[in-house]
Computed example of a mutant assay.
Amino acid sequence: MAKRHRFERKEDRIVRKAGRRRPYDRMLIVCEGSKTEVNYFSAIRREKRLPNADIAIVPSDYGTAPLQIVEYAIDRFNEAKGFDRVYVVFDRDDHDSYHNALAKAEATHETLKNDLKAKVQFQAIPSVPNFELWILLHFRDVLAPIHRNQVYAELKKPAFYPSYAKNSLTVFQETKDRIADATARAEALRARYTSHNGTDPYTDADLLTGELLKIANRFS
């Protein structure tokens, strides 16, 4: 008989204690890019040995505009309905559909039903100006509007993360020790600004990162 994965063994124990209820939410995470964000969240899933089937991390097949990402996530979910939460990860950048994407994500929240006939949480994970702001927050505060080019320049300073490269497979591993600092800074921005403004620095990447790590901690 094949040896069972440690995640599955621990999951079985928790399920037996709590009845048949799954001890974690199944997630569909749809990202703007095919590499940067996908690589980051996949690295968490891989390092923490989370199940691929129940935590799907995919790029949008419809394009990289925020509204296209939301629309793809809806269609992808409707193909199988095997998820409890859907996250759409996108940047503000110069996208014309940014505000429409936020509105559609909010309007879609709890309107879809999954394979268990339960309402599905649908949440946008925007970053202003881009996902790299989340990485920069691991190293310093950002309190004023900043252009994406400046984010890259700041991030690559010798005192911060000079080896950073878009599409890297190792960003999570190389920054994970600073997640608590980055989360505190992201929370401070959320208390000060709103994603709907679209010009002030903002990210919800900490929320999704935190959810994945929370699942992992339940099985550690």
Rank of each mutant, 00 (worst) to 15 (best):
R9L: 09
K10G: 03
D12G: 03
R13E: 14
I14K: 15
I14N: 04
K17C: 02
Y24C: 13
Y24E: 13
D25V: 08
D25Q: 15
I29Y: 05
I29F: 04
E32W: 07
G33T: 07
S34Q: 12
V38L: 07
V38H: 02
F41D: 06
S42M: 11
S42L: 11
S42V: 08
I44C: 14
I44N: 11
R45Y: 08
R45K: 15
K48A: 15
P51T: 11
A53H: 05
D61N: 13
Y62G: 01
Y62P: 02
A65P: 01
P66V: 03
L67P: 06
L67T: 04
V70P: 09
Y72N: 11
Y72W: 09
A73R: 02
I74H: 08
D75W: 00
D75G: 06
R76D: 11
F77N: 08
N78L: 13
N78Q: 14
E79C: 11
F83N: 06
R85M: 11
R85Q: 15
R85G: 03
Y87T: 11
F90I: 09
F90Q: 04
D91Y: 12
D96Y: 01
D96T: 05
S97Y: 04
S97H: 03
A103G: 00
K104Y: 03
K104F: 02
K104M: 08
T108C: 06
T111R: 07
L116Q: 14
Q121I: 10
F122K: 08
V128G: 01
V128D: 01
P129H: 07
F131A: 05
L133K: 01
W134T: 13
D141I: 01
L143R: 09
L143I: 08
P145T: 01
P145F: 00
Y152K: 09
Y152N: 03
E154F: 11
L155E: 06
L155T: 07
K156R: 15
K157E: 13
P162Q: 12
S163M: 04
Y164V: 12
A165P: 01
K166N: 09
S168M: 05
S168P: 04
L169V: 15
V171I: 15
F172A: 12
R178Q: 13
R178V: 01
R178F: 01
R178L: 14
A182E: 02
R185H: 05
R185C: 02
R185L: 04
R190F: 06
R192H: 05
Y193C: 00
N197A: 05
T199Y: 00
P201F: 02
Y202N: 02
D204F: 12
D204I: 05
D204L: 13
D204W: 04
D204H: 13
L207K: 15
L208K: 03
T209G: 03
T209V: 14
T209N: 07
E211V: 06
E211H: 10
E211L: 12
L212S: 12
K214L: 08
I215Q: 07
N217R: 14
N217M: 07
S220D: 14
S220I: 09
